[in-house]
Amino acid sequence: MDYFLLVISAVFINNIVLVQYLGTCPFLGTSKSTDVALGMGGAVIFVIGMSVALTWPIQKAILEPFGLGYLQTIVFILVIASLVQFVEMFLKKLLPPLYRALGLYLPLITTNCAVLGSAILVQKNGYGLAKSVVFGLATGVGFTLALVIISSIRERFDISPIPQVFRGVPIALITAGLMSLAFLAFKGMAS
C-alpha cells in the first residue's frame, strides 16, 4: 500500500513537470511528436532510476558521514553526468538496439533538473534505497505521461486553426499551463 501510494503520488499528485515544474525544458523541446515523446520518456525513466540508485549510497556513505550535505547538488550533478556518459558508451557497445532507441536523448538528460530534482527529493523525503528507486522510476513515468499527453495535443495543433502569433512555443506554453491546472486537482488526494 505504501508503495502504491508512493507511485500514485509520484505519477499524478506530485507530477514532476506539471506540479513541481521540473524538467520543463525537454517537456517543451521534445514534445512535438508522440514517437519522440515516448523515446524521451523511456530515457528519462531509465536515467532517473539509475541515478537515484547511485546517488543514494553516495549520500549515505560519503556526504552524510563527513557532514558534507551542502555539497549535495554539485556532487550529484557530477555523478549523474558521469553516469549518463558511462551509460551511453555502455549501451552503444553492448546494447545497440537500446542505444538506437534512447541514444539520441541520453545527452539531453545529462544535466536535466528532473533527474537531479528527484535525486535530491529522495533525500529530502528520507526514503530507503528500495523506496527511492521506486520513487525515481515512478517520477520518470510521471514525466513520460505528461510528455505523451502534451505531444499528442501538440500533434493536433498542426492541423488546428491557431492564430499565427500563437503558433509553436506560445500555444505549447498555454497548453502546459492548462495541463498543470488540471493536475493540481489531484492535490489533496494523498500527500
Binding site: L68, L71, I74, V75, L78
Partner: peptide
C-alpha cells in the same frame, strides 16, 4: 575535505 571530496569524485 570538500575540495578533496569533489576532486576525488
Amino acid at each position: 575535505t570538500s575540495v578533496l571530496l569533489v576532486f576525488g569524485l
